[in-house]
Simulated scan of single mutants.
Amino acid sequence: MEAISFLIDFILHIDKHLEAFVLAYGPWVYALLFLIVFVETGVVVMPFLPGDSLLFIVGALSGAGLMDYKLACVVLLVAAILGDQCNYSIGRFIGPKVFQWEDSRWFNRRAFDQAHAFYERYGGITIVLARFMPFIRTFAPFVAGVAHMERSRFTAFNVGGAVVWVVGISAAGYFFGNMQWVKDNLEKIIWGLILVPGLIAIFGAWRAGRKEKAQA
């Protein structure tokens, strides 16, 4: 329970935790950033780690002069690209057997089904869109691997999506993260970054499910 409480507090107050880490450990923060993004995007059982909020805070800290923005973007890009490639490879290796899995401590079948429905509806562009959707971005490359999507095509969407995701959100944090209004409402913004994309993903999966039933 303590670990879960710390994780929730870390996600909701990532600005304070990350700033404290920078002040305490300096350049080691780039290794931490790589680890968080790689694990969130590359390990199917870790979809709950912060993504969008992390990028926004990194941009804000860089704008405040606490981090090197260009270096942070390079580290985050490499982590995001390698994470998706790892996830894709895992899905490709496991194959269709994954559809026989049930809910367990380490695998959320409902979240996987939502990602699969979203992928089936939007095809390869899902790899790009999923970058902005918590949970979905963890499962989308895995589903692409299970579906044996052509690796070269997947890689193109992977790289393109990573660039738009990392640069787009971190740039928003860099230019707007240190505005007083943003600081005063940061927790609400973090909640928005978590909930809004998630609701959009659920709605997309629901519509895909309705269309599939209608066609049947």
Results as ranks from 00 to 15, higher is better:
4 I>R: 13
4 I>C: 09
12 L>A: 08
13 H>F: 10
15 D>T: 06
22 V>T: 08
24 A>Q: 13
28 W>I: 13
32 L>H: 04
34 F>Y: 06
35 L>V: 12
37 V>H: 07
39 V>S: 15
40 E>G: 01
41 T>N: 15
44 V>R: 03
50 P>V: 00
51 G>M: 01
52 D>M: 08
55 L>M: 14
67 M>L: 13
73 C>A: 14
76 L>M: 15
79 A>R: 02
81 I>A: 01
82 L>T: 08
84 D>L: 03
88 Y>A: 00
93 F>M: 15
98 V>C: 03
101 W>Q: 10
102 E>Y: 04
103 D>N: 13
105 R>N: 11
107 F>L: 06
108 N>Q: 05
115 A>Y: 01
117 A>L: 14
121 R>E: 15
123 G>L: 07
123 G>K: 07
132 F>L: 01
135 F>V: 13
136 I>L: 09
137 R>S: 03
139 F>A: 00
141 P>A: 02
143 V>N: 00
144 A>P: 01
146 V>K: 00
152 S>Y: 09
157 F>N: 08
158 N>R: 03
159 V>F: 09
159 V>I: 14
167 V>L: 10
169 I>M: 09
175 F>Y: 15
178 N>C: 01
179 M>R: 12
179 M>Q: 11
181 W>I: 14
182 V>T: 06
184 D>L: 10
185 N>G: 07
186 L>C: 05
188 K>C: 12
192 G>Y: 03
192 G>E: 07
200 I>F: 13
200 I>T: 08
202 I>L: 15
205 A>Q: 07
206 W>K: 13
210 R>N: 10
211 K>L: 15
213 K>A: 14
216 A>Y: 09
